[in-house]
Amino acid sequence: MMVGTVPLLQAGYLLREQLFYFMAVIALLAVFNGMTQGIWSKTSSAKEQSLLFVQLLVDLLAVTGLLFVSGSAANPFIFILTLHAFLGGMLLRTKRSYVFAAVILGLLAILQTETNKDLAVTINVNRSEMYFQFLFQWVVVIGAWFVAHLFSGLLEKQEERIRSLQNRQHRADRLKSLGALAAGFSHEMATPLNSLKLRLDRGVRKLGDPVAAHSEIQQAQMSLDECISIFQKMAGVFTSSATDGELQKLNIHSVLKDIVHSWEIDNKVTLHKEWTASQVYCRLQPLSFAQAVLDLLDNAKEASPTASEISLRVFENDQEVVIEIVDAGSGVSPEIIERLGEPFNTNKQNGNGLGVYSAMMTAQSMGGEFSLSNNTSGKGATARLSIPYEESV
């Protein structure tokens, strides 16, 4: 409407004395749209449709008012109502879409009635051509709404189908992961349990020799501790999301700073950190996120030679916060990378592979991704955790 101000003045649809009020309405409409756009980010999904309906309705009423004072249905910009009909049919759902369509048609009828009154006193007016234009306007507006409403319904059904397929795939992945976890668990538990049984049997046979029996019992206790450690690690993987509850909107830099500081104190290691503290908020499960970062830092420390530098890089990339932990070890074998994310997938002598598995599950639960790759320098590996962020303040 603002772009068409000059042509409307030249064609006589808009009078110069109306120009101030015309531009004032456009300015107020722009302010209103800007304010409602700011409210969008703070509105729950349940109220989005109501806010959208009000926003479109205010736009429609303001534009109709501008058309009313600048030629009504004879104004060439009357087809801006078609745009509103299309948006209403596309964006609004259920009864709101039908109500909005009825409001548009009602306002169109008012504009056409006003135009008809103005032309009633005009000489040599072709009534048939005027009525044909009115009919054409109705057809275009109704057609735009109907096509958009139909297309929106098809998109909604397609989205439901995609969500259904994603849920099925997610369940299939969980079953596959559970099978791999069960197989790996059986394999991991077999060695310490066999060792525990063997040590106990030998300890019983050597009861006559207290020293030898004590040594065997100590070895049996170590095997038992290893079994307990595996059980606890598995319990942590499966219960972390349940104990965390819902995702919480937190400043990821603040949370990460506390986690890293605590790890540095406990391990007496100072990381080489590259990040700028900023107000970036992510939806996190605090406990599982902290555990994933701590596990990755522990892995980096174990993989790196003593006194070598471990780097931590945090940066923003394409609406995501990326956390990279770089070690100075010998890298990761292609077999490990190929089976990345499988439980008990490790080449460490005393490792169980559940740390990387837990990190991947944690990243996916927060809508992010996890990857592990060897550094291009040929020395060490990089664990990369990316999490989508919502806003920067």
Score class of each variant (00 low, 15 high):
347 N>K: 11
165 L>W: 07
197 K>T: 11
367 G>K: 15
97 S>G: 02
362 T>F: 09
80 I>C: 14
383 A>P: 11
368 G>P: 15
114 E>L: 10
306 T>S: 07
136 F>P: 03
1 M>K: 13
200 L>K: 14
325 I>A: 03
211 V>D: 00
229 S>Q: 06
182 A>V: 14
2 M>L: 13
293 V>S: 01
92 L>E: 00
373 S>N: 14
190 A>T: 14
4 G>F: 10
322 V>I: 06
223 S>D: 02
266 D>S: 13
101 A>T: 00
171 R>Q: 13
369 E>S: 15
264 E>D: 04
18 Q>K: 09
247 L>K: 09
50 S>P: 11
284 L>K: 04
392 S>H: 13
257 K>A: 11
252 I>H: 01
126 N>A: 10
216 E>S: 00
301 K>W: 10
362 T>K: 15
382 T>N: 11
176 K>M: 14
170 H>S: 09
89 G>L: 01
253 H>K: 09
301 K>G: 07
290 A>M: 06
147 V>G: 08
125 V>T: 01
142 I>R: 04
201 D>F: 15
57 L>A: 11
298 D>R: 15
118 D>Q: 12
22 F>M: 04
21 Y>F: 09
123 I>H: 10
84 H>S: 02
233 K>L: 00
349 Q>C: 07
104 I>N: 02
280 V>T: 09
211 V>Y: 04
205 R>Q: 15
309 E>K: 15
325 I>F: 04
113 T>Q: 11
196 L>T: 12
358 S>F: 12
335 E>V: 13
130 M>P: 06
220 A>N: 04
37 Q>L: 02
341 G>F: 00
93 R>Y: 04
391 E>C: 10
352 N>Y: 05
338 E>Q: 07
39 I>S: 05
284 L>N: 06
324 E>H: 10
197 K>S: 13
342 E>S: 05
201 D>Y: 14
349 Q>G: 07
300 A>M: 06
101 A>Q: 06
70 S>G: 07
24 A>V: 06
248 Q>T: 02
273 K>R: 08
22 F>L: 01
373 S>V: 14
109 A>I: 03
387 I>G: 11
32 F>K: 07
31 V>F: 00
175 L>W: 12
197 K>F: 15
157 K>Q: 02
133 Q>W: 11
229 S>L: 08
98 Y>L: 10
247 L>G: 03
54 V>G: 11
236 G>N: 00
250 L>G: 04
311 S>D: 07
378 G>S: 11
261 H>R: 15
318 D>C: 09
277 A>D: 06
388 P>N: 05
267 N>P: 13
205 R>M: 12
168 R>T: 04
121 V>F: 12
290 A>D: 00
26 I>H: 08
123 I>C: 06
329 G>T: 00
388 P>Y: 05
18 Q>E: 06
50 S>N: 12
20 F>P: 14
83 L>W: 09
253 H>E: 00
249 K>I: 07
385 L>W: 13
60 L>R: 10
40 W>M: 09
230 I>G: 01
359 A>W: 04
19 L>V: 04
258 D>N: 08
27 A>K: 09
116 N>R: 14
113 T>L: 12
355 G>W: 03
391 E>V: 12
279 Q>E: 02
